[in-house]
Design a protein around this nucleic acid. Structure first.
Lengths: 247, 247
DNA sequence: CGCGATTTTGAGCACCTTCAATCCGTGTGG
DNA sequence: CCACACGGATTGAAGGTGCTCAAAATCGCG
């Protein structure tokens, strides 16, 4: 089968083959899962809010985000999805309450939902791994909720930059120190933080003016990490949020 | 063993024995889990933000909430915990980023964390059930995030009342129609929605004045459910949030 | 009855929004 | 090669939702 060939050949070259879900998959599991590759362009939707989908996606390359829309067009980005993440698996739920959209050009592994359910029921390690992933995502959602509910604009932006920085850094520890390649527009950041693009821009400018960060062309420099932690209201030593940040 | 006796005798009378995690537990599983009962009073902490805990709790009676505190005392309630819920299980994480506090008088089943990990690794159904619970909690967190990030005060309050109403109703379908017994203070509601108690009070008064709800003595009446849905910005027919609400 | 917690109401202020215009980098077509 | 269009970033000015500070009223409870 072509798909099994891909699962074998494709996985060997996969940049995220040793992380998350795939770390626990045996060769048998992989063939059972009927994994198929897919490429999607920027702005493509992986699945839509309120519409049932039978596909689960594992991200090999590229960024996406999960979002909810209100009737009048207001948008909340509830999570950013990075390489190695699994999205689209909603056990026991037919229609997801959120959609998923690609930010840039993405390489995905597509897994039929029922296959994953089947494997999860057969292999406790897989099911447990899924539980761990959901639990971790939940903790991040709680941190974001605290950010949006109780922090000022500058605190929120500092927190988000740190979150993204450490999520990227965990996957690529060899990458240069405080550089952050963000394929996001300021509108994305605004929608993730419950702000307007205008105020997001002003607040980013303020951070730049303070010498804490610099940015341009989709690149963010963290010039003063300690200051950024202080502004975010996170104690890198003992802060509770730091736990989610570093794990 | 006394604990096993409780697990047998206690479970028979447990109001949530047929829901969630316990639905899939065999008698053997139960004795393996070393379940022990506990009573805690209002305001007690089940576990603390940033402090490792080896106990997992299943709620038999009473309400609690999960919350995060900032350095300066700002508090965000990230979730309400109702009878039948499981709290305190953070796989692969030593120190939780949030704490849990009892709202009123509670009856709990306490499970040693390692026991639950063990059983989850042995029984795929249990691990899968955990994944389902986390996934569902995550979806609720996303809905709340959308609420706090993108909705006005009156929309947020309407959304929260509907969420709590339907969560309670699912467990007790026989309960009277639009009555809602909330053991919460207005400060709890404010902290869950990213508002101040003062503004929460004014907004609740506005809802009462509009004839949509009435309240007092910890009881909330939903006088006009359709209006409440409309104010919350939720379409009970096809709205995406409705999916999380009704499931 | 008296105390503390909670709810309620008032007035002024601030953070963030809204509306609007301009600037800039990139890609496209003439 | 330049004009043009387009999305995104930037800046300005005015207004509003929700906050802060403060005090009074009400409720629950010993």
């Amino acid at each position: 089968m072509r798909q099994e060939a891909f699962a074998a050949a494709g996985c060997a070259a996969c940049p995220v083959r040793a992380e998350g879900l795939c770390r626990h998959l045996s060769v048998d599991d992989r063939s059972l899962l009927h994994i198929a590759p897919r490429h999607v362009g920027p702005g493509s939707d992986l699945f839509y809010q309120g519409e049932p989908s039978d596909e689960v996606f594992r991200i090999r390359e590229g960024w996406a985000f999960l979002y909810e829309l209100l009737e009048d067009g207001r948008r909340q980005i509830v999570q950013f999805v990075l390489p190695g993440d699994l999205v689209g698996f909603h056990p026991e739920v037919t229609a997801p309450s959120f959609g998923a959209q690609a930010v840039n050009s993405m390489e995905l592994c597509v897994i039929p939902r029922l296959r994953l359910v089947e494997v999860a029921h057969r292999r406790p390690n897989i099911a447990y791994q899924l539980a761990c992933m959901f639990s971790h995502d939940e903790a991040r959602a709680y941190d974001r909720l605290t950010s949006v509910g109780r922090k000022t604009a500058i605190e929120r932006i500092a927190s988000l930059l740190l979150e993204l920085f450490y999520r990227l850094r965990r996957r690529a520890p060899e990458a240069p120190g405080e550089m952050l390649k963000l394929p996001l527009t300021q509108t994305h950041i605004a929608d993730a933080l419950g702000l307007t693009p205008v105020h997001t821009n002003r607040t980013l400018a303020l951070l730049r003016q303070k010498g804490v960060i610099d940015y341009g062309n989709g690149l963010f420099h963290i010039l003063a990490p300690a200051k950024l932690f202080a502004i975010a209201g996170i104690d890198p030593g003992s802060g509770a949020e730091a736990a989610t940040l570093f794990h």
